[in-house]
Computed example of a mutant assay.
Amino acid sequence: MGAVITQQSKTDIRKAKPEAIKAFLAEIGEKPFRSKQIQEWLWKKSARSFDEMTNLSKKTRELLEEHFVLNPVKVQDHQLSSDRTIKSMFELHDGHAVEGVLIPTSSRMTACVSSQVGCSLSCKFCATGYMERKRNLDAAEIYDQVVLINQQAETNYQIPLSNIVYMGMGEPLLNYKNVLESIDHITSPEGLNMSPKRITVSTAGIAKMIKKLGDDEVKFNLALSLHAANDEKRDKIMPINESNTLEALKDALNYFYNKTGNRITFEYIVFYNFNDTLEDARELWEFTKKVPSKVNIIEYNPISEADFKNTEADRLDQFAAFLEKKGVTVNVRRSRGKDIDAACGQLAIKKK
């Protein structure tokens, strides 16, 4: 009697190396080209079951089912905002959940995806930072969020995704391998064939991993959650700054730029009476001179765990105007999906 194969002992086919799939196919007497067909089903056609692989024989599909497992991410719940933003709770195969957001605007259709279940960085203004980090997402779980959000875009608005931002739950650079592998599947001609120029990975600032991105000569865009351009203020809201100072980040970002040629985006949330004065704007301008960059000024979205408030409209306008007069490229990002807790910094799995 052969060993009984349980669901737990099966290999996740999307984690299996192509050589292992080829070896399995040889073992069951299938032709090697079937391996390419399977990869196509997994990463180009986004198959969610072996039954969908209709150019394989029924017997081969049954044998795949017997030896491998496919763990597609599922939409457990979703909410529609008054501004057409859609927030989804995605259920993972082990019962954990993450959130992702479809952000439709007049010029683009953006997916905001998560890279970790929870987060370990404890940024004081971010709801995810108050959650415990349970685990990293694997590449397929990140890829699935993109596929499902794209389906929502096409179903609800008849427009496919134009952009992807890794700005959901978690710190992408603390899940480096899986994040880069997911981007490979999203951008590869054998995958979703999306341009890396339409993908932005956002980090709270881990200097050595930013340098690694440079060494790997990545093609996607990099955004740094800055939120204060002096160490004392940044330490107060982002504990990661204590071990990754602005000086260390400046060196890492210049290294990244010299290796990739990609200008950095600084994300700057304006908190009332904390980092919203013209002196703060001057410090930010000084920092932008040290790194080829542009600035996204972001409205703050209050969370119950923190006392921060969004700055007043006239202070935000003065802040942006100061930077623009100094020649900084500035975009003011208005909140989307605030009424369903889908806006920047609001993603958290609410305990039932």
Rank of each mutant, 00 (worst) to 15 (best):
V218F: 02
D216R: 04
I21T: 11
L80C: 00
F125Y: 13
N193P: 00
Y255C: 12
F50C: 08
K309T: 12
A139F: 03
T6Y: 10
V165L: 15
A26E: 15
F319K: 05
L121A: 02
H67M: 05
K352P: 14
N71T: 06
K212L: 14
N244A: 06
K17T: 07
V328C: 08
A223N: 05
F256N: 08
D138F: 08
K259R: 15
Y257P: 00
G100R: 01
T260Q: 07
E91M: 12
E62L: 11
F50G: 11
F256E: 02
L224K: 03
E286K: 12
T187R: 12
F90T: 05
S114R: 00
M169H: 09
A248L: 15
D314P: 00
L137F: 04
P72V: 03
F50L: 13
V146M: 06
L323A: 07
G191W: 02
N262G: 05
I264C: 09
I38S: 05
I103V: 13
Y300C: 06
R48P: 01
Y268H: 13
K259G: 10
K212H: 04
K233T: 04
E141P: 06
E99R: 00
R14I: 06
L25S: 13
D83C: 02
N55R: 04
F33S: 09
Y272W: 09
W41T: 07
A321M: 09
T260L: 07
P160H: 10
K289E: 13
K233E: 02
R315C: 06
R61D: 09
E247L: 12
I298Q: 10
K294T: 05
Y268N: 11
P302A: 08
L42I: 11
D317A: 15
D138A: 05
R334Y: 14
A229Y: 05
N301Y: 04
A111F: 02
I164T: 12
K325W: 03
E66G: 01
S120E: 07
T200N: 03
K338P: 00
L64K: 09
H227F: 03
I240L: 14
K177Q: 15
I38Q: 08
F33E: 13
E279K: 15
N193A: 14
A306R: 09
L246E: 06
A20H: 12
D341R: 13
N175V: 11
E19T: 15
C119F: 01
T60H: 11
Q151L: 03
S162A: 09
G214Q: 10
E267R: 07
L284D: 04
A97W: 00
K44D: 00
R14Q: 14
V98E: 02
R234F: 00
F125L: 04
